[in-house]
Amino acid sequence: MADTSVQVHRPAEAAPRRASMAEAVRRYGVLVALVLLILFNAAFTPNFLSWQTVNVNLTQVCAIVIVGVGMTLVIAAGGIDLSVGSLMAISGTLAPLIFMGKLFPVSPGLGLALAFTVPIVAAALLGLFNGWLVTRFRIQPIVATLVLFIAGRGIAQVMTNGNLQVFKEPTFQFIGLGRVLGVPVQVILMAIIVAVAGYALTRTVFGRQLLAVGGNPRAARLSGIASKSISRWVYAISGALAGLAGLIVVARNGAADANLVGLGMELDAIAAVAVGGTLLTGGRASVIGTLLGALVIQLVRYTLLANGVPDAAALVVKAGLIILAVWIQQRAKGSS
């Protein structure tokens, strides 16, 4: 369980029934929406209940969930990270450059090892840079991460001279195309990341201190919590996860395009976090919620497409979902 508020909710003595309803909707709304979507599709969408459909949807949602987990942690600590899409582009274009030996000459084996590690480390360091801007200069997170949102994609384009890199490298592409026991590797990675982050957020000192910093930074500092160091770590983790998502996306496509990798990802991730019930002002977060939120958004899109509604209309529905999620949060906030 990654829900941070697993405790039984006890409304204040005179709390109106409506408020606890709102709280229940906030907590279980995403789950209910997901179940309803699955039931709807099972009834009306042809071939929905097939292994193929499950895999398609899970594969589509992987990158968003992996980035969304990082985003959940950043938002829980009271920040936000707009740079994730650009960091995906850097990591996604860096990997082929390394294993194709365009950056420096390497043996194929070493090149592959470096292609997995160097981009993720680079993205983590850039995330650390975000954290440094936020904590050292007290720049608002939305502005601090805007720096790499803009510059990051530029860096990726400069590295590749703006060219599309096409490659066929089965070992590297295993991360995006491979399967273990029929389950896509990226789905396994996603599940591990969700489980680890959920556990860390609920059970570890780091996770609880992170939520304390997001919930009341001044009280956290006076309780001896090293809030700056926690913030820096959180941005580094968000960067590393964006780096991993970048690798998965280019491996899946067999091509790296600095202009397109991770484009708009920051907004998809924030949408998943919001729909998942994490408080956007910090202090309350649910990693499982983010997973469910991403699945709901994906499934709504799939449902509309499978039933002949154009993608453009699906975008409008996605926006509606976000408004609904935020509205539910506002209502629940007034309770207890």
């Binding site: 508020s5 405790q7 059970r203 570890t204 000192v205 780091f206 609880r208 201190q209 939520l211 304390a212 919930g215 009341n216 001044r218 009280a219 956290a220 006076l222 309780s223 001896g224 919590i225 408080l279 202090g283 309350r284």
Partner: peptide, 29 residues
Amino acid sequence: KIEGIIPDMSVAENLTLALMPRLAKAGVI
């Protein structure tokens, strides 16, 4: 309100907020 409680956290966690690192083994509470 401003410098004491973490409003959304439980009584147990607010009470052990400063103590938490000492209650952990390998970072797990």
